[in-house]
Computed example of a mutant assay.
Amino acid sequence: MIHSNAATRLKEVSTDPVTLDYHGFTVTRSTPTIGAEVGGIDLREPLDDATLTSLRQALVRHKVLFFRDQDITPAQHVQLARHFGELEVHPVFPHHPDHPELVLLGGNKDMRGRENIYHSDVSWREVPSMASMLRCVECPEAGGDTIWVDMARAYAALPEAVKERIDGLYAVHDIMPGFGARMTPVEREINRKKFPAVTHPVVRTHPEGGEKILYVNEGFVTHLANFGEKAQFRVGFDFRYGELDLLQYLFRQAAVPEYQVRLKWRPNTIAFWDNRSTQHYAVQDYFPAVRRMMRATIIGDKPF
């Protein structure tokens, strides 16, 4: 497992050159804020430790990396992702028959996909994911893009008064809003016991890059755990509506285009993103065409 603390801290707008050289590959920035396309690397081949370290540095720096024309097998996908940490087995999504660490994503001609909400993968876990690695198996010629959002930039741009207001607040993250409808009543009871709602700081610190990150998402956050301890109000509805208004304001930050990058998929495109500092949204504009994907998710660390 490769770790690095060499990532630079957040800047208002990147002044990096458009194309940067790393050990074993190049990256070309997609936007001034987030995203980069990786070139000069074949993920079917073994990668040395220096290249893996550079990939991790690039991930922390650019937050999502795009690789084109990477015709890797499911076994290679798992092996590649495992270089960056232990892989999770998702409790709800269907798995690859030979590799339970790979989830199979996508609807079919009779059922739409349902990932079109801004979210960070498995933030409902006590120890959420560090990163996800998604490969396109099949996609429509048009539509089905994915959007990623730089939530460190979203936090940095907040008004100072809002930063003061959310300092010390904790949000409750829950598996059920996103996945409860996919479960039978028995499965809901089992998973409720296995995955109780958890609290994470509204503003977390990136353990490698050091940035402050706005860590609430409308896919899994249900409420603020300690809003009443800090809020000032006259009567009860001030408290309740104040909490709802603040959460909705924070959720909306992910929808700001200036914090986003958008990827048009092609078969054998891979996106590798940092779940600690980003949210994403899978655009569902292609139904009844089919989009099939495989994803490996790397276990991270407890937010602080």
Rank of each mutant, 00 (worst) to 15 (best):
P91T: 04
G144V: 11
V64D: 10
F227G: 03
M183W: 02
L263E: 00
E258T: 09
E88N: 03
G178Y: 00
R262S: 13
T8P: 09
D49M: 14
R192T: 04
T222R: 10
R135T: 07
E243Q: 15
P91Y: 07
F25D: 03
N191A: 10
E126I: 00
F179N: 06
E160R: 13
L250I: 12
K212Q: 12
A157H: 09
P196V: 12
E187D: 12
L244G: 00
E208N: 11
A282F: 06
G144D: 03
H223V: 05
I147F: 06
F195T: 03
E37P: 01
Y259T: 00
L104P: 02
T19G: 13
G24C: 14
Y259V: 02
M294G: 07
D285V: 11
A161N: 15
R240P: 03
M130V: 04
P32A: 06
P257D: 07
T184R: 10
A154P: 04
F220L: 04
G106N: 02
L104W: 07
S54E: 10
C136S: 07
G143R: 03
V27K: 02
D71T: 15
I2Q: 12
V202L: 09
R234I: 14
F239W: 02
P159F: 11
M130T: 04
A156W: 04
R114L: 06
H206L: 08
V64Y: 08
E12I: 12
R68G: 15
H77K: 13
V27S: 15
E88F: 10
G228L: 02
K302M: 07
K193I: 07
E88C: 09
A254N: 08
S132T: 14
Q76L: 15
I213E: 01
K163V: 01
L65V: 05
I147W: 05
T33C: 09
H96T: 06
Y155V: 05
F227M: 08
T8V: 13
Y170R: 10
I2Y: 03
R125E: 12
H206D: 01
L59F: 01
R68H: 15
T8G: 13
R68P: 00
G219T: 08
Y170P: 03
E138S: 15
E187Q: 14
L250C: 06
L104E: 09
Y22P: 03
R9N: 15
K109P: 07
P100F: 03
G219L: 06
M294V: 11
R44M: 11
P97E: 07
A181P: 06
G107F: 07
V203S: 02
F93T: 00
G39L: 13
E141W: 02
H95V: 10
P185A: 01
R112E: 13
P17M: 12
Y215F: 11
G85A: 04
V162C: 13
A282N: 06
G242K: 05
N268F: 15
C136T: 12
R44K: 14
L169A: 13
R291K: 13
V202I: 15
P140K: 02
R112D: 09
G180I: 01
Q70K: 10
A225T: 05
R252W: 05
Y170Q: 06
H23G: 01
I213Q: 08
Y118L: 11
H23D: 15
I2N: 03
I72L: 05
I147K: 01
R29L: 02
P201T: 02
N217R: 02
L65Q: 09
T269H: 07
P94D: 08
M176A: 02
L80I: 15
H280N: 08
E88S: 11
A181C: 04
A255K: 07
F67G: 08
